[in-house]
């Protein structure tokens, strides 16, 4: 019994919630360190939203600028103003879907084993990675907001609006990262995972009111747009910011609920998000520990 004292210094308060958060924190800390160390990732995080807003936003704005006010967008807002909340959700989508690659990379390289043999909860591992993605999303939201305002989006920055600007992308990322983790649990390698993401991200983006109102889409596409969770994100945000919605939503009459549409959308998105996150982490952990 010579090594009885071997682990005396390990200070476990085992199943306690504090220990859980501590372990989430360690996994999260590594994600932050990695992000900070990789300057190229930081730069691309900044450049992506910049390009969308500057190139697409300004081109479309000029294209539509000649049309009479209110011809395309009820309430007479211009395209940059319309598009900025959409870009928030779109960048959230790309960051969330591709952010899961780091989980993938760690699975394939074997790094994840360090976490899996450590005395921490397995869901804490997934939470740590997810928090890493949410941090990136929040940073990007801040960047887009600043750029959007700089190039002429007319947004009122009330407390409620600011809250919505940050909460809707986060609720969307629950759904998106959950979806990506679910796919990751099925994909044998990164190439397959990327091949799975592309055909999912395009319809998610174009069959939602991110870049244009879905009311003008062909009937069958419009129906898909109605059940696209990103529609809840974009429209909930726009409803908060502009008091207007640009897409029909399933189950409810928009005209009656217009005041509460933001809250409704947020709750829908939040529930769907948590569901996907739960499915995703279960599937992923099961694929790891057989």
């Amino acid at each position: 019994m010579a090594t009885v004292q071997a682990n005396q210094n390990l200070n476990y308060s085992d199943e306690s919630i504090m220990h859980y958060f501590h372990s989430v924190g360690v996994v999260y800390k590594r994600q932050l360190l990695r992000l900070w160390t990789s300057k190229s990732r930081l730069i691309s995080m900044l450049i992506m939203p910049l390009m969308w807003l500057l190139i697409i936003g300004q081109s479309f704005n000029n294209l539509l600028g000649s049309a009479p006010a209110g011809a395309f967008f009820p309430g007479g807002i211009d395209y940059i103003t319309f598009m900025t909340p959409g870009i928030l959700i779109m960048v959230t989508m790309f960051t969330s879907l591709f952010g899961v690659i780091s989980l993938f990379y760690d699975r394939d390289s074997g790094y994840l084993k360090n976490y899996l043999i450590a005395p921490i909860s397995n869901t804490a591992i997934i939470m740590g990675y997810a928090l890493g993605i949410y941090t990136q999303v929040l940073l990007q939201v801040a960047i887009i907001l600043v750029i959007g305002l700089a190039i002429g989006a007319s947004l009122t920055l009330s407390l409620v609006n600011l809250l919505a600007i940050f909460l809707f992308p986060i609720a969307s990322t629950f759904f998106l990262s959950g979806l990506a983790i679910t796919l990751a649990s099925r994909a044998p390698n990164v190439e397959v995972f990327q091949a799975m993401i592309m055909p999912i991200s395009l319809p998610l983006m174009f069959l939602s009111p991110i870049l244009y109102p879905t009311k003008n889409l062909p009937n069958y596409f419009e129906w898909i747009a109605r059940i696209n969770p990103l529609t809840f994100g974009v429209e909930g945000l726009r409803a908060t910011l502009f008091g207007n919605s640009f897409a029909s939503l399933p189950l409810i009459n928009v005209d009656i609920f217009v005041n509460n549409i933001a809250i409704f959308n947020f709750l829908m998105l939040f529930v769907i998000g948590l569901f996907f996150l739960w499915i995703g982490s279960r599937a992923f952990l099961r694929s790891l520990i057989k």
Binding site: N9, N11, Y12, S23, V26, K29, R30, L33, N114, Y115
Partner: peptide, 13 residues
């Protein structure tokens, strides 16, 4: 950093 993160997982002071 690698070592400190690992110690963190085991709650080492």
């Amino acid at each position: 950093q690698n070592l400190e993160l690992h110690a963190g997982l085991y709650n080492l002071p």
